[in-house]
């Protein structure tokens, strides 16, 4: 709701440039673009973020205003030499799981937070983020365990929201999420077409995000988590929730 209203007010142009601004800012603050180094050319940035040149220029102007980037006529843009990269986005401290009651609270919380992350991802994802999401969904468990692949998918959805608070939360909750997924996949992998169903759910969620349908993305995430929760808590292979 907020984003739609804001982008109507600001114009699509500005909302796109603020997405690119955010991503570039993150690359600088995380030290991936090091101080004094030269930024990719405007043409390369257009390609990398899949946006037009005015959008890139607007984002660069905002980074100059922040004192993060210097532009020299004829020789391109550079990260300011004095920038100190910080990986210190606020990390959320969550209570440990010590009982089934905690697990219930945690699963309720997960449904709320991940449903919202999926809705925002539907509105705001960039093409590279969508590409990553498709790849992670398609390769569930290909390079790690199925449970880890499942976690990676949920993390990629939070990343596609472009909001560092959602991503940090998912990262801070990694061990909690893996605890549930470990049980679910240990007992689920050999049961019926459990893996196939998970992949179908993930695929449907990606399509809702790709269609920029925030309501459908939120619903798909919530129903998928409710379905996995039924599997975790009852051990039964539930009817397909989607």
């Amino acid at each position: 709701m907020a984003i739609q209203e804001e982008s109507r007010a600001a114009g699509r142009h500005q909302s796109l440039s603020s997405v690119v601004y955010n991503e570039m800012r993150a690359l600088i603050m995380q030290g991936k673009w090091t101080p004094s180094s030269r930024l990719p050319s405007e043409a390369e940035l257009c390609k990398q973020f899949n946006v037009s040149r005015p959008v890139v220029r607007q984002a660069l102007a905002a980074l100059r205003d922040d004192g993060l980037v210097l532009s020299r006529q004829g020789s391109g843009s550079f990260v300011q030499p004095g920038v100190v990269p910080t990986a210190s986005e606020p990390q959320v401290q969550f209570p440990p799981l010590t009982s089934v009651a905690d697990l219930e609270s945690f699963l309720n919380f997960r449904e709320g937070i991940e449903g919202e992350a999926a809705a925002i991802a539907a509105r705001r994802h960039t093409e590279p983020q969508l590409q990553t999401l498709r790849e992670v969904a398609a390769h569930l468990g290909a390079s790690s365990s199925l449970a880890e692949g499942d976690y990676e998918f949920h993390r990629a959805v939070a990343a596609a929201s472009g909001n560092p608070f959602y991503l940090n939360s998912l990262e801070s909750l990694r061990s909690h999420i893996m605890f549930g997924l470990g049980i679910t996949w240990t007992f689920g992998a050999g049961q019926g077409d459990f893996q196939q169903t998970v992949q179908t759910h993930h695929g449907a969620l990606v399509e809702a995000i790709a269609a920029r349908d925030a309501g459908a993305a939120r619903d798909a995430m919530r129903r998928h988590l409710q379905w996995e929760r039924a599997k975790l808590m009852t051990g039964q292979f539930p009817e397909d929730g989607l």
Partner: peptide, 13 residues
């Protein structure tokens, strides 16, 4: 940007 992101996050949570 953190301030804006924080309000957005708080809306959800």
């Amino acid at each position: 940007q953190s301030g804006k992101s924080c309000f957005e996050f708080r809306m959800g949570i």
